[in-house]
Each structure stands twice: as structure tokens, then as C-alpha cells.
């Protein structure tokens, strides 16, 4: 399959500027990475409503809390590795616990950061964010969905974590395809096996489905853009109708999207399941494709997992 590759960050910047025009209560914070996260677009359009906190993520999050407590809708951005782990206590105490209107939109998540290496490749941010009460967790699949997700979360008053990548990603949705936080999207119908992906791995699931089709296997593909709250209905229905599930994520398999799906299925409907994702190890420097291959995040890995669950399916 050939994809059009586009930047999620660019759409984040665009959505922020639009929001800034539409609403006076939108305030944006960054921690010295605004040209990378693209909050710089907002900064140049609305300099008085942009605050660069310098290399001080903890300070950024608590400052965001004060702004949100004063009625602002706050977007706070930096790289995902710094925007979650480095200020975890601040997010816990001052965002999630008081349920403040703060959207942490973190870029450069996952292993596709590439050359920067393990220090910058956060593969545990979904785990950190999904265990926090009151926190929603979203992984937009592509540039179109990033735009829609940012516009959507701005309209609620809750804490939200939005994870986007550094690299351009395959565009798998249309500008006008619907986006609903409460509903995962079915990208392809099929009744033999379900492939559930998030982020860049959705495109790999679609490629895997094409490959499986060559062997007469009809795979359903779900874009699970919202990890929390989890669309349990669509997951259980897919498990019931296809009898086998594979998840695929650019995140540690220890406690990411696949784990959320596994927990849902173990309590609701047992089917053979396999999680494709980064094993319990740190990444390293390399090119995106090389890293995806080294850490088991290819279309072939998904196909192999699908054959495995199909074998176990009664």
C-alpha cells in the first residue's frame, strides 16, 4: 500500500491557531521546544497568550494549573518524554487530581524519534497517563485526526493527554471522516481476526490486513485512537465476531494500549490474543524503519501475530 505521509505536529499548530482565533480562553505553554511541537505557530499569532516556561516542565504544568483554575483552557506541550515522566508528580497532583482543564499535547513520542536514542524515545507514556484517574488518553492516528482531536478536546473541560509523533505518518483518514472520543473507528471490516492499532501502527494493521487477504483471511481493523476512556463495546463486539485479536502499538507492551485491550477482554470475552509492540527494553539510535524492524513493529510482525492467534482460535 502506498501512503501519503504527513505531519501531525503541523496540524496541531494549525488547530491551535484556529482555536486561538475562535476563543479568548485558549492559552498555550511550552518548555523551550515550541518550534518542534509547533506551538510556535500559536505563539506568533497570539504572543500575549503564549508562555514559554523554558526548560522547566514541572513549572510549566503547575503554571498551567493556575491558569486553568482561573478559567483558561490550557494547552501545554513539549516532547512526550519530558511532558510525562519529568513532571509526573505535577500532572498527578495539579492536573488529574483537581481535574483541571489542561491538555497535554506531547510530540516526539515513541521509538520513531529515531536518532536521539533511548533517552528521548518514551515508550511508557501511555502507561503513565492511563493509570491517572480523570485523565483521558488519545493517540491520533494521522495528521487529519490530530487536527480533529485537538479541536475536540478543546471543547471539554477535562484533563487530556494527546500523544503525537515526530516523524510524518501515513494518512489513513479523510479530512471529513468522523471523530468521536467515545468511539473507536472501524477502518476495515472482516470476520476472521481483529487487528487493533493506535497511532502509526494503524497503517501497519491495514497493510497486514491486505497481506492476510491474499491468504483468504478477512481481518477487521480498528483504529483505537482513544485509549481512555476505552471503547469496550467495539472491542468486545470485535472479539465476539472474529474470535481472535491482535493489538499493535508503538509503545511498550507492558502497560500500553494492548494491555488495556487485554484487560477489557479478559473480563468480558476471552479470545486468543497477541500484543505487537516494543518488548520490555529501552530503544536506541537508528532510522525509523530500522528501529521499527528491530523492535518488532512491522507489518510482518502483525501478520505473524495474526496467524498465531488464528491457530489458537477454535
Amino acid at each position: 500500500m502506498t501512503w501519503k505521509w504527513e505531519s501531525q505536529r503541523k496540524q496541531y499548530g494549525r488547530a491551535l491557531v484556529e482555536l486561538g482565533k475562535e476563543r479568548n480562553d485558549i492559552v498555550v505553554l511550552d518548555a523551550d521546544l515550541s518550534s518542534s511541537t509547533r506551538t510556535a505557530d500559536f505563539a506568533s499569532a497570539f504572543p500575549e497568550r503564549f508562555f514559554n516556561c523554558g526548560v522547566a516542565e514541572q513549572n510549566m504544568i503547575d503554571t498551567a494549573a493556575g491558569l486553568a483554575a482561573s478559567g483558561k483552557t490550557v494547552f501545554a506541550s513539549t516532547f512526550a518524554v519530558f511532558g510525562t515522566g519529568r513532571c509526573y508528580d505535577q500532572i498527578r497532583q495539579s492536573v488529574a487530581y483537581p481535574k483541571l482543564n489542561i491538555k497535554i499535547v506531547a510530540s516526539h513520542a515513541g521509538i520513531t524519534v529515531g536518532g536521539d536514542g533511548a533517552s528521548h524515545q518514551i515508550i511508557e507514556d501511555l502507561a503513565l497517563m492511563r493509570v491517572l484517574p480523570n485523565m483521558s488518553v488519545i493517540v491520533p492516528v494521522d495528521s487529519n485526526e490530530t487536527y480533529k482531536a485537538v479541536k475536540t478536546v478543546a471543547s471539554n473541560k477535562n484533563p487530556v493527554y494527546v500523544r503525537i509523533g515526530r516523524a510524518d505518518v501515513p494518512t489513513v483518514t479523510d479530512k471529513d471522516s468522523p471523530f468521536d472520543l467515545d468511539k473507536a473507528s472501524i477502518m476495515r471490516t472482516g470476520d476472521d481476526v481483529t487487528l487493533i492499532g493506535c497511532g502509526i501502527m494503524v497503517s501497519k494493521c491495514l497493510e497486514a490486513a491486505e497481506e492476510l487477504a491474499k491468504h483468504g483471511i478477512d481481518a477487521r481493523v480498528i483504529n483505537l485512537h482513544t485509549i481512555k476512556p476505552l471503547d469496550e463495546k467495539i472491542i468486545v463486539k470485535a472479539a465476539r465476531e472474529t474470535g481472535a485479536v491482535v493489538t499493535a502499538e508503538e509503545h511498550s507492551v507492558m502497560m500500553g494500549m494492548g494491555s488495556a485491550v487485554a484487560m477489557c477482554l479478559v473480563e468480558n470475552f476471552h479470545v486468543p490474543m497477541k500484543r505487537v509492540g516494543i518488548p520490555d527494553v529501552f530503544g536506541e539510535s537508528g532510522g525509523c524503519d530500522e528501529l521499527m524492524e528491530r523492535y518488532g513493529l512491522t507489518m510482518e510482525n502483525i501478520v505473524e501475530a495474526a496467524h498465531d492467534v488464528l491457530k489458537r482460535k477454535k
Partner: peptide, 13 residues
């Protein structure tokens, strides 16, 4: 945490 949160309120003001 408190001073940073207070700063956020001050910026809002």
C-alpha cells in the same frame, strides 16, 4: 508546586 500555580493565576489576572 504552589508558587508555580500562583504564577498561573497571576498570568490569568
Amino acid at each position: 508546586h504552589g508558587l508555580a500555580a500562583g504564577n498561573g493565576m497571576a498570568l490569568a489576572a
